[in-house]
Design a binder for these strands. Structure first.
Lengths: 346, 346
DNA sequence: CCCGTAGATGTTGACGTCAACATGTTACCG
DNA sequence: CGGTAACATGTTGACGTCAACATCTACGGG
């Protein structure tokens, strides 16, 4: 990609017109301009027209800094992310940014440079320096347990934690994991192996717990868990182990990226998918439909989670109260070619 | 994922301590606090210590709105994106955010809700409402040709356009495409087919031009281009066509996602990779090493592009001048299993 | 014909910070 | 020992906006 600068001169340094400039041109007071600018209705229609015309003529834009200084609100929220490499994080960020923008809030993207406790503390402390009214924390919760959250700022943690007593918005991880597991069992598999996300992630923990519960409910053996970290590489490593074990006929990976790694390892070892082994993922990335074979997976609605998250945060910002009603966003199983009945059903 | 709110009370509404509170506690004037706060060196060491102690005790944080109002600078840049679905965009955003944060600038993420001209104009107009000193535009350039860029704001367009006369920072698209094409030719392929990015993208245009040039230089036939749009789906569609054509033995896709689509189509039609057809991508996504077969691709350094972009923008913000020296960031061919010599070299 | 009232508009001051300028203090020079 | 540079610190006002309050006008009822 290329970067380019706009040519031509530009009067940097000179500030734009202020409310008073508009007021002068329209022959009214600054306050009236303010009222028009904020959409208050106690302004005569003709006056409003005159002010709007003046605004247009001067190219007036309200100064956000002054407004924020005066009102004490920035109309801006921070989103703290660790890495944009994981599909889930990226999608959530997109959804949150879209929802916030639609609600008239700006989004401050704050990357944590490395996932050490120290950096994280630094970032949270720095949050007070940012011009924001609240924050969404898009980082696996475990890291937070050691770290003091900002105390003076409304905060929503996406991916809940044992330390916080009531989760507000969540993809229904349990439902999704159950759908994946049951799909494989219903096809006739004896049991289902699991490649989990990092133990520090509560999403991962819930998916795993639900997988285990589903097996137990049916009185089935629960195979040992292979722990990954959401990355393709970790899925591949787990896959190598699974490929060596002839007993494995069905695998549920906690996300699509790890599922891809598993597929890779199985291919390498000449185990056919879905002939020898069936694989299910979680997320439904754009790519998943084109894996080889196309991946059966669980689709979650990042859009809904993003909207609910932003709503909860804005509600807290504006009212000072928590939104106590938990919201569960449903999941949907998408069946593709990576799953089939086991070759030899006894 | 889950969202959760911090429990406990919090004194919303009450503002934090101001400079004057600190000044009072430290027994100095507000101005001295300001000097300490801004790291000026004309403050006595003992006084500075006293002020810092007072800041710590009160939990003082400078108010960004007031500072911005006073100085006229927000120390914040906007990044305008269309969708976070494409790998390149996401990676660039990550790199830009990291670079900007490291340089003390906040990042305002501004999503364009749909890629219509109207929405784009709206977004650019709205830029003046944002509390930012400059903007990075991370949208394929073609859309911009129809749209007035913000005029009063330093702006850097990532992915240059014919309308802007000097690209500043760029992955060396030409070099990358040449590496990919030559790699295939050096393996003994007669010619190389190309699945291009959207014609509105200048990155895509350059990759395509360089591929064509490389073939022409060697006096080889230039096959018709298959036009994609960066998406996996479009790669799959192009792949279907390529799979039907027995003459095709080597394909260069303009990004990894489309390469994945091509692989899918080839598999479906029973054409072996790399036995029958070799495939090269562009980007080196995390996933690419685990495609089946692992994908040969061109790695580009988003980090360097991001840093150079932010540097150029900040330079313009602070000096008012354009940075005229173009920068080209090199690419690197990563050879994996998706490429090999053609089966029958005549 | 006066007063009350509602709605439109104006005036004032403060939000927190920092640049510019003013003042105070120390120390070194010839 | 007066003069003055070099440095530390203080005072003042303005950045652009909006809430609170003050004023003005028009109109209807008594």
């Amino acid at each position: 990609m290329a970067a380019e600068l706009k040519p031509g001169t530009r009067d940097r340094g000179r500030r734009g017109p202020s409310m008073l400039d508009v007021a002068r041109l329209a022959g009214v007071s600054g306050q009236t301009v303010s009222r028009v600018s904020n959409g208050h209705d106690n302004v005569d229609a003709a006056t409003r027209e005159r002010v709007l015309a003046a605004m247009r003529e001067l190219g007036y834009r309200p100064n956000r800094a002054a407004r924020a200084l005066r009102t004490g609100q920035f109309r801006s929220i921070a989103v703290i992310v660790f890495e944009l490499s994981s599909f889930g994080t990226t999608r959530s960020l997109d959804a949150i940014a879209t929802a916030a923008t639609a609600r008239g809030y700006a989004v401050n993207l704050i990357p944590v440079l490395s996932a050490t406790e120290e950096r994280l503390s630094e970032t949270f402390a720095g949050l007070d320096h940012q011009a924001v009214d609240g924050a969404v924390i898009l980082i696996e919760a475990h890291l937070l347990d050691e770290v003091r959250l900002p105390e003076t700022l409304p905060t929503v943690v996406v991916d809940s934690s044992a330390l916080f007593d009531y989760p507000i918005v969540d993809t229904d991880q349990a439902q999704g994991a159950r759908q994946a597991t049951e799909h494989l069992l219903d096809l006739g598999h004896r049991t289902v192996w699991h490649v989990s996300g990092p133990t520090e992630s509560y999403s991962a923990i819930r998916r795993r717990a639900s997988w285990e519960e589903t097996l137990t409910e049916r009185g089935l053996e629960v195979p040992p868990v292979l722990a990954g970290d959401w990355s393709v590489d970790s899925g591949y490593t787990a896959g190598l182990e699974l490929a060596r074990n002839d007993e494995v006929t069905a695998v549920f990976a906690a996300n699509d990226q790890m599922a891809l790694g598993v597929l890779h390892a199985l291919h390498e070892h000449g185990r056919e998918v879905p002939g020898d082994v069936s694989v299910v993922g979680f997320d439904d990335m754009d790519e998943s439909a084109h894996f080889w074979p196309p991946l059966t997976t669980v689709r979650q609605s990042f859009v809904e989670v993003g909207e609910a998250t932003v709503d909860a945060l804005i509600h807290e910002i504006q009212s000072g109260e928590h939104h106590r009603e938990p919201v569960r966003i449903g999941t949907q199983l998408v069946v593709r070619d990576s799953t089939a009945a086991p070759r030899s059903t006894p």
